[in-house]
Design a protein around this nucleic acid. Structure first.
Length: 426
RNA sequence: GGAUGGAUGGGUGAGUGGCUGAAACCACCGGUUUGCUAAACCGACGUACGGUGAAAAUCGUACCGCGGGUUCGAAUCCCGCUCCAUCCGCCA
């Protein structure tokens, strides 16, 4: 969530930013409400503090009177404290209800887009940051989408997944399974080479962690929930990995923190089914290698571009046609200040598929996480967090299979040979 | 699943009603000494919110796992919860 002090001190910037997210004048009123409520909070807090200070003083005085044996005097003082206690209780209730209301309002405000983010409301308003300027792969005349290729070469099986679990849980097998493992290994190796520490986190997290990265209280419908133990299956490695630094104060000289993790991702995708979701385009469980960074605020946008170029490199090594979009305000995630999406060209489906989303959250996440750093002067500030997929497997596999199909089989990109152990499927 | 014990600052750990925001030690940081390092010595060393102040600073409040209660006063007493450790059972 946004910092109160920032909303107060940079109100016009925040308001302009929210306009890029197509916030109406009516919606923007919440900003003034927040500021007014915060004023109330401050004065209310002062009242409570003052009342408590008085009580503390009296309590101390009573202690002294008792030790001097002046019981009578102590008794009269006690009565004064008792009445003070009543008013303190009322003031305190008022304060906590103000605080609660304030927090709820703050939760409704998304991050303020960076000044370079274009205005817009739909995916059509996204800017093409880097277009694909080479020809698309030409496919044989009998080319088919990946779900048909999967059947032909026995790479993964949706019906079997239904038998074991349900729709959207593919079973990979044979060369299809091996290709998954090869991609994971390749992506992890590339991330480690780029200086990211490899993390293998739990795939279930507790409520605090789900809250820390903002999945709760809003998006609980998107996560699988083990109610017996009150644990959540992670929708992305971002959740456990970013929560590593929840409630931490990091020494400035230890920044940046660069971490990478492979995990399966579990998403209920409630209500998301419809057209264009065949095959691997949308599934409940998929594999992903994530990269996460904790950065000094001065460096976070440079870091964002480094992450973008890291992902670009992966796409190039896999010989996949891709483009990079700079998301407009309306299409950006709630917590993001600036997001680049990577899309891969799926030649048989003749459409772009999103395979990576790289974002700078500035202090939006760290505010809730209480993730801070201490600078050389001992001053404590919120750090910036960033993350991105590098990369998400299912759709990469879809594109890989479709784009590389030939009459003799599916060609594996050279970069993967040492991981797959084969150069061709079929 | 059964039994016991425990949760205090970055770490170890003292503290059973007021003199405790919290001893001591270790780590970290600054300094002295030193050819360098180490050792030794000296010093500083929590976080959040709020008040005053241009600032340095200073004052108030809260926080000893979380929530509630007793009391003029709670890290300390009582109740509930969560988590952790150990032993037994089961088991990859």
């Amino acid at each position: 969530m946004l910092q109160l002090e920032v909303i107060r001190s940079e109100k016009s910037r925040i308001v302009n930013g929210l306009r890029k997210r197509n916030w109406s004048a009516a919606q923007l009123k919440v900003i003034n409400q927040i500021i007014a409520l915060d004023d109330q909070r401050k004065s209310s807090q002062k009242e409570v503090d003052d009342a408590r200070a008085e009580m503390n003083q009296l309590a101390k005085a009573i202690g002294q009177l008792m030790s001097q044996g002046k019981k009578e005097e102590a008794e009269t003082q006690k009565k004064i404290v008792a009445s003070l206690k009543e008013t303190e209780k009322q003031l305190d209730e008022k304060l906590s209800s103000i605080k609660q209301e304030l927090e709820q309002l703050l939760y409704t405000v998304p991050n303020c887009p960076h000044k370079s983010v274009p205005k817009g409301s739909t995916p059509e308003d996204n800017q093409v940051f880097k277009a694909w300027d080479k020809p698309f792969p030409t496919l044989p005349s009998d080319a088919v989408p990946h779900w048909d290729l999967a059947k032909k070469y026995n790479l993964f099986d949706f019906e079997l997944g239904v038998k074991l679990t349900g729709a959207g849980f593919p079973v990979y097998r044979g060369q299809g399974a091996r290709l998954q493992r090869a991609l994971i290994q390749f992506f992890l190796d590339e991330a480690v080479k780029a200086g990211y520490e490899e993390i293998l986190p739990p795939h279930l997290v507790n409520e605090d962690s789900a809250r820390g990265t903002g999945q709760l209280p809003d998006k609980e419908g998107q996560m699988y929930h083990c109610t017996v133990d009150n644990l959540y299956l992670i929708p992305t490695a971002e959740v456990p990995v970013t929560n590593i630094v929840r409630n931490e104060i990091i020494s400035e000289k230890d920044l940046p923190l660069k971490m990478t993790a492979y995990t399966p991702c579990f998403r209920r995708e409630a209500g998301a089914w419809g057209a264009h979701v065949r095959g691997l385009n949308r599934v409940h469980q998929f594999d992903k290698v994530e990269i996460v960074r904790v950065e000094h605020p001065d460096n976070s946008y440079k870091a964002l571009m480094q992450m973008v170029s890291h992902v670009s490199k992966l796409m190039k090594k896999l010989d996949l046609p891709f483009r990079i979009l700079l998301l407009c305000g309306g299409d950006m995630g709630f917590a993001s200040a600036k997001t680049f999406d990577f899309e891969v060209w799926s030649a048989a489906q003749q459409r772009w598929l999103e395979v990576s989303s790289v974002s700078n959250f500035e202090t939006f996440q760290s505010n809730r996480l209480k993730l801070r750093y201490k600078d050389a002067n001992g001053k404590i500030e919120l750090a910036h967090t960033l993350n991105g997929s590098a990369l998400a497997l299912a759709r990469i596999v879809a594109a890989l299979l479709e784009n590389n199909q030939t009459p003799d089989g599916i060609l594996i990109p050279k970069a993967l040979w040492k991981y797959t152990g084969f150069k061709k499927i079929g």
